[in-house]
């Protein structure tokens, strides 16, 4: 089980790094990249499950999951980037904090 634990810890560390990046960088692109790192952690762990001691065969399920997950993450990232671009177009910067065109808020 030690291999599994190593993978588990690695994935948690990757997840945490991603999270740290998400919360510490104000720039939106960096935030999105950080999210992908978080996702990377999760995928890494999943793919590590494909070969485990229970049976000699390689379990196809984790691979299917990771493939699906990557597709989902790609589309989500694309959507997030799209929104970021709109924000950049409108405010001229890639930040979440300012919204100058709404004086009443």
């Amino acid at each position: 089980m030690t291999t599994l634990l190593i993978y588990a810890f690695t994935s948690i560390i990757l997840f945490s790094i991603g999270l740290f990046g998400l919360v510490s960088h104000p720039n939106l692109i960096r935030k999105i990249v950080s999210l992908n790192i978080m996702g990377g952690g999760a995928f890494l762990f999943l793919i590590s499950l494909a070969y485990h001691g229970r049976s000699p065969d390689i379990d196809p399920v984790p691979q299917a999951m990771v493939l699906t997950g990557i597709v989902v993450t790609i589309s989500a990232t694309a959507f997030a980037l799209c929104l970021t671009r709109r924000i950049r177009e409108k405010t001229g910067q890639c930040l979440l904090e300012h919204c100058p065109d709404k004086p009443e808020t």
Binding site: S16, L19, F20, V23, S24, P26
Partner: peptide, 10 residues
């Protein structure tokens, strides 16, 4: 704030 969120999250 993002940092508070991160702390709470973890």
């Amino acid at each position: 704030a993002w940092s508070v969120f991160g702390i709470f999250f973890m």
